[in-house]
Write a protein that binds this DNA or RNA. Structure first.
Lengths: 214, 214
DNA sequence: GTCTATAATTAGATAGAC
DNA sequence: GTCTATCTAATTATAGAC
């Protein structure tokens, strides 16, 4: 019974203050690529250059890590919408301009952070506590804001003829699917959805299509 | 050493000729809800009222089951498009009518079989052999057909101003996202995406939005 | 707080009785 | 072809040295 095996590799200690943030970023990529069940905590830790048990140390569980990572990402999304000026509801052309700006920022954010809607897509295919939580906490505010103006924009002939109850998901699908499916876009079209010109063309197209009366 | 334990449950034999098809249908639901990695062969077998090893008997592996199930589903999709009359390419109004009919059938099929684009979404978030295979085998033909007419419809002022390289994914996202995310739609809007009236309103909205010059 | 070791569970696949 | 039992590997989580 030797107290220390002779050829055990030396214990490397990699102390870093930002390990929590690195784990959050890594979790977003892995959850976005594989979904909650498909992603493994080992892969998340490896990508963050950490050890698997550190996830249970810095977060309570795999699920707690998921909630923290999604909170973090929606915080970034909210920040991307900062500074939008919401005009008087009766000034419909100004409302349309503001919505166009929201759509453009939505496109750019989704291009920069495809993980958000990748995770939403993975989750939205099946009812779950995680889905209920993310919708109540993060999605409903944006849905409510769009509901408040879409009907009036349609009546004024500015917005495309899509039902109020459907516009949120139709618009979200049109905006985010090319970035969520970026690997498929590359295979199918040979174009690069992270190219800035690609992103702006996509934003122009979506705005012109969904707000044709602008 | 008793040759037969006394209280072992009796061996129930459930022989069914349609077990292969039941496994395919079950696999589509489970792969659609959880993705390839998240779905378990035990859950797939349970839903088909079969035993887990029967998957390895009737199919070579979990992956072979995935390929067979996706092949089966795209076969149904192709059948849903049967009978579409493709007019002369120069008769643009007739081409637009045909495309509108394709979109309507696409909407109805996705409503009836949300598993197809659920599986596509799960797969498209990460490059893989499965993604490469399904795009080359099943997606590219439809992409090619749309490419052939979209530019001319745009030039004629019939189609919405979306780039040729983007229209496939923008349209697919707009059509399928509400059905792929049906659990989210129910939570967020309180409406039911499988309701026939809902489906037709969605089809009308997408056709009018993407083919405004019709 | 980081690390090794491992417990407890579950995964896909296989062997062989029936 | 169906079924029970089981193998091997991978999973999340925990215990305890450092």
């Amino acid at each position: 019974m030797v107290p220390q095996a002779p050829n055990r590799p030396p214990r490397l200690r990699r102390s870093r203050a930002d390990i929590r943030e690195r784990l959050l970023d890594s979790a977003l990529v892995e959850f976005g690529a594989k979904g909650f069940d498909g992603a493994s905590t080992r892969a998340i830790a490896r990508r963050a250059d950490a050890h698997q048990p550190q996830i249970n140390y810095h977060f309570a569980s795999k699920e707690a890590l998921w909630f923290a990572a999604v909170d973090h990402l929606f915080e970034l999304f909210g920040r991307a919408m900062d500074g939008i000026v919401y005009p008087e509801p009766d000034d419909l052309p100004a409302v349309a301009d503001a919505l166009a700006e929201v759509i453009r920022r939505f496109v750019r954010f989704t291009a920069a952070h495809p993980e958000l809607h990748r995770i939403m897509m993975h989750e939205a295919t099946e009812a779950s506590e995680r889905l209920t939580w993310v919708i109540a906490r993060h999605v409903r505010p944006f849905y409510g804001a769009l509901m408040g103006v879409w009907g009036r924009l349609r009546a004024a002939g500015i917005a495309a003829p899509i039902d109020d109850a459907m516009i949120h998901h139709v618009l979200t699908g049109a905006v985010s699917f090319p970035f969520v499916s970026a690997p498929a876009v590359r295979l199918l079209t040979g174009t690069e959805p992270t190219d800035p010109a690609w992103i702006e063309r996509h934003a122009d197209g979506v705005v012109a299509t969904f707000l044709p009366g602008l």
